[in-house]
Amino acid sequence: MTIPFADQTLSRADLKDLATDPQAVLHFEHCTFDGADLSGLALRGAQFLGCSLAETVLDKAILSDTRWLDCRAGGARFQLANLTDARFHRCDLNNTDWAKATLASARFAEVKLTGAQFREAQTLGLGFHDSLLVGADLRGISFRKQTIEQLDLSDADVSGCDFRDAIFEGGSLRDAHLKNARFDGADLRATDLGGLRITALAQFFKGAILSTDQAAALVSGLGIRVV
């Protein structure tokens, strides 16, 4: 049973009783939840279209199979939430906190995740596409054998990430933090590697595939002319 809401400002009290009905599928269109505490609510399968959730607290919420389109949720908190198979498309998720959340098979496409924190999140099957992750904390996430399309990871912390055999299609690793990251067999020819020193290349990119232009730029960074 789908229960629709449109153009409303909603609080925890408005949703608490509905969230206890396992048959209810909530559909929110252009609704406002700014600053609300929705922690622990069971919102499985809910749909959010054009909603505002600035600084909303969704800690420990059940958000599996949810759909989020054109939402604004800057500063929202998803700590320990279950977002298995969730889908985010064209959303503003800047400075969101996903610490210890379950993000198995979740997908983010055309989203803004600048400054987002993914500390200790469960990320098996997690995927990003054409998104901004500038300055994000992605430590320890595995991207192994994925096709990584147009991800801006500039200044992101990808320490300990597994990029082995990944294919980068565009995007940027400019000034990224690479400690203990693995790139064996990764194809980085289409990626912006600006700001990385050749010493980092030797340490972290062993076995990776680069273009001749990228290699020349890195050598030029040492003051050596390539002709």
Rank of each mutant, 00 (worst) to 15 (best):
I3P: 00
P4E: 01
L10H: 06
S11T: 15
R12H: 15
D14L: 11
D17A: 14
L18A: 05
T20G: 01
T20H: 13
P22I: 03
H27M: 07
F28R: 01
D34F: 09
G35I: 09
G40W: 04
L43S: 08
R44I: 09
A46F: 05
Q47R: 08
L49C: 06
L49Q: 10
L49P: 03
S52M: 13
S52E: 14
T56S: 08
A61G: 04
L63V: 04
S64V: 01
S64L: 03
W68M: 10
L69S: 11
Q79I: 09
N82V: 02
R87E: 02
F88Q: 02
D92K: 04
D92Y: 09
D92N: 11
N95C: 14
D97G: 00
L103W: 04
A104I: 15
A106I: 03
A106E: 04
E110K: 07
L113M: 13
G115A: 06
R119T: 03
A121K: 09
T123R: 02
L126V: 00
G127K: 12
S131F: 11
G135D: 03
D137G: 12
D137W: 14
G140N: 03
I141R: 01
S142C: 12
F143V: 05
D157P: 09
S159G: 13
C161I: 05
F163S: 05
E169H: 10
G170C: 12
G171N: 07
S172R: 00
A176K: 10
H177K: 15
H177Y: 09
H177G: 06
L178G: 01
L178K: 08
L178Q: 02
K179V: 15
F183S: 04
D184W: 13
R189W: 07
D192G: 05
L193C: 10
G195E: 02
G195Q: 05
G195F: 02
L196W: 02
I198L: 09
T199P: 02
T199Y: 08
T199I: 12
Q203D: 14
F205L: 08
L210R: 10
A217K: 13
S220G: 12
G223H: 01
R225N: 14
R225E: 11
V226H: 07
